[in-house]
């Protein structure tokens, strides 16, 4: 059992995002507060333009908020809308990302794409290779890990991307419509992977999705509309 399970690993307090000023002012995300705990899978639903991606990019430390504070695994990253630490380091150590398209680096094979997340943080080649192979084997990619991304199917690419997001045991994984390019069975497989990985590695997984068919696999659902975040399902008991 991962010791991080059940702990709050993402704390968002009063975070908002405003674009433009005066008549062009657009409040993409109204002041939002929520926490995510290690081991849970949280789905974020909402129509286009509701602020899902804005929330995800703020939580992923890609897009700075206009106001509010943000803490990842107990480390304060943003305070009152201002960056208070090196975000690149925090992204490298505490966050994992999965996208609609796998976005694998085309000149690296499957195993190298996974190793990359470790090696950019200074892990040795030997250790990164060993860990990547174990993880990819566990994801059923043992026989395909040496293939280049162009030779992999969409589902295989997405599994590699999930392995890359999980390999360094981040506390938070952010996924932006990871099943949108997959058929229903592969989409379900991917969501099952997220759920299993979240429990196994003790990470909170935030999934922005339109895919209602897989909601039974998530622990809670947050719904966004016009920049407001509403919780529509209770937190699942994952302890």
């Amino acid at each position: 059992m991962n010791e991080r399970l059940g702990k709050i690993v993402l704390r968002i307090e009063g975070v908002s995002k405003v674009y433009g000023e005066g008549p062009t002012r657009l409040e993409a995300l109204r002041p939002t507060t929520f926490n995510a705990v290690a081991g849970e899978v949280v789905a974020i639903l909402g129509p286009s333009g509701s602020g899902k991606s804005t929330l995800l990019t703020i939580a992923g430390l890609i897009n700075p908020p206009t106001a509010g504070s943000l803490e990842v695994n107990g480390k304060l990253a943003i305070k009152d809308g201002r960056q208070v630490t090196n975000l690149a380091t925090l992204r490298r150590q505490e966050l994992g990302y999965v996208f609609q398209r796998s976005n694998l680096i085309p000149f690296l094979n499957g195993e190298e794409n996974v190793r990359l997340a470790l090696e950019i943080d200074g892990v040795s080649t030997r250790e990164s290779r060993q860990r990547a192979r174990v993880l990819l084997e566990s994801l059923g990619m043992g026989s395909r890990m040496q293939a280049m991304p162009a030779k992999l199917s969409g589902g295989e690419q997405q599994r590699i991307a999930i392995a890359r997001a999980m390999i360094h045991q981040p506390s938070v994984v952010l996924a932006d419509e990871p099943t949108a390019a997959l058929d229903s069975s592969r989409g379900r497989q991917v969501m099952e992977l997220f759920r299993d990985s979240a429990h196994k590695h003790g990470a909170a997984v935030l999934v922005v999705t339109h895919d209602h068919r897989t909601l039974d696999l998530v622990d809670r659902v947050l719904e966004m509309e016009d920049g407001n975040l509403n919780e529509t399902q209770p937190i699942a008991d994952h302890k």
């Binding site: 890609i62 690149a88 992204r91 966050l95 990302y97 976005n103 085309p106 000149f107 990359l116 950019i120």
Partner: peptide, 16 residues
């Protein structure tokens, strides 16, 4: 550029 953006997203240092 996409790979470079990804490297930055993953937190790659400038020297990489």
């Amino acid at each position: 550029m996409l790979s470079l953006s990804l490297l930055k997203l993953l937190g790659a240092k400038r020297r990489v």
